[in-house]
């Protein structure tokens, strides 16, 4: 699994946020566009792309995209 590919897929979920905002250390819950729907969309993306089921706790417990990536990676 590649972090850059993960960031790319993560960024694709967002419609109104500039791609440059998405970095490994981006605190995704601080993005203006972050919402409960985005939380579900991230779960759906990880399910579809990586066949890993993220839980609400995983998202609550993560601050950065890297932290989410590490959870997904650990379950592959």
């Amino acid at each position: 699994m590649d972090i850059n590919e993960f960031i790319e897929k993560f960024a694709e979920i967002f419609e109104d946020t500039d791609r440059a905002e998405f970095q490994a250390d981006t605190k995704f819950k601080e993005l203006d566009e972050w919402s409960s729907i985005m939380a579900l969309n991230v779960i759906a993306m990880v399910d579809d792309e990586y066949d890993v089921l993220l839980k609400g706790d995983d998202i609550r417990g993560s601050e950065t995209i890297t932290q989410l990536f590490e959870i997904v990676k650990s379950r592959k």
Partner: peptide, 10 residues
């Protein structure tokens, strides 16, 4: 705040 914008509302 911890549960804002999360799966809880769904």
């Amino acid at each position: 705040d911890e549960y804002l914008n999360s799966d809880i509302s769904f």
